[in-house]
Nucleic acid binder design. Sequence first.
DNA 1: TATTGTTATACTCTATAACTATA
DNA 2: TATAGTTATAGAGTATAACAATA
Lengths: 166, 166
Amino acid sequence: MSDEAPAERPELAAQFYRLSRALIAAEEPLLAARGIGMWEYVVLLALGSAGAPTQLELSRITGRDKTRLIGNLDALEVAGLVVRTPDPADRRARQVRITVAGRRVTSSCRSAIRRLDDDLMAGIPPADAEVFRRVLATLVTAAEVVGRSPSEAVPGRGAPAEGRKQ
Amino acid sequence: MSDEAPAERPELAAQFYRLSRALIAAEEPLLAARGIGMWEYVVLLALGSAGAPTQLELSRITGRDKTRLIGNLDALEVAGLVVRTPDPADRRARQVRITVAGRRVTSSCRSAIRRLDDDLMAGIPPADAEVFRRVLATLVTAAEVVGRSPSEAVPGRGAPAEGRKQ
DNA sequence: TATTGTTATACTCTATAACTATA
DNA sequence: TATAGTTATAGAGTATAACAATA
C-alpha cells in the first residue's frame, strides 16, 4: 500500500493513444494524396479480402456504423473505387465490390503506410521488433475482453457517481 | 519488388488505435466511479508532478487546448481536487495546485489503471513484456517525428488532391 | 500593443431516430 | 412486422475567434 515510489511506469493507454494519433496524422496526407480518407481506406482494405458483402455485412466487418459507412461508399463509388449493385437475392440489399482501380489505390496506400511503419520501427533491433509485433498482436486480441474482467468492479462507495456533466 | 504475397503484416496504426480505444473505454468507468473524466485525470497526473503551473503552462504540459482545459479545471475545482489562486507575480494568471483530495483520487485512479494494464499483459511472458515496454517507450518518443521524414512526399501526380469533401 | 483567462461561435464526428422500399 | 439502406436531427468534441483584465 505504501507506494511512495510510483515506479514511474507509463500507462499503456496513454502510450497507445499518442502512437495512434501520431501515426494516423502522418498517414492522412498520404491517403489524401491518393484521394481517400482514413475510413475509406479501411473500407477498401476490408473489401480486398471479402468477396461482395452487403453494406450491413461490411458495417459489421469494419466495425463502422452503417449510417456513416454510406458517405464513405458514396465517395468511393463516385471515385470509381467500388461499385454497388443490387443483391439479386434480396432487392433491399446492395452488394459492394472493389474495382480494379480500387485495388490499385489500396495497394498504393498500403505500400506508403508500410513505409511509414518501417520508418517508425527503423531504430529497433530486429529481434526486439519481432517480439514487439508478436506481443502487440496478442494484446490486440486480448483488448477486446479487457475491462470485462472482474479485477475491479467499483471502488468503495456504492454510488456510481454517474451524472457527471464535465 | 514482386511482393505477390502481401505478408499480411498488420498495420501499426490500426493496432494502436484499437488498443487505445479498448483501454480508454475500459478505464472510463473506473475514472467515472471516482468522479472524474479521462482528461481530468490527465490534468491531475500532470499536476502531481508539476508544482503550481499557470493554466497556460498546464495547457502546454498536457497538450490540451487552453480553452478546453477550463471546463476540466472548473469541474476539478468544484470537486475540491484542485485550487486556482491568482499568481502574485502576474495578476492575469492563475496558479493551479492539486489538493490532498486530488492526490488521493489520482492515486486511486492510477492503481485501478495499473491493475487494468496488468490484466491486459497477464498472458505475456515477463521477458517479452519487458522488451515490449521498452520498444513501446522508444516508439512513443520516435512517433513525434514520424511523417516528417522524407521517406515519401507525395505520389506521382503533383496535385495534392486537396479539396475532398467526403 | 501583447498576454491570460474566459466566453462564444462554428465545424467535425458521432449516435440515434425517423423514413422508404422491400421482405 | 421486420429488415437494408438512406436521411435527418441532436449531441459530444474540437478549433478558432472574440472579449475583459492586466501587463
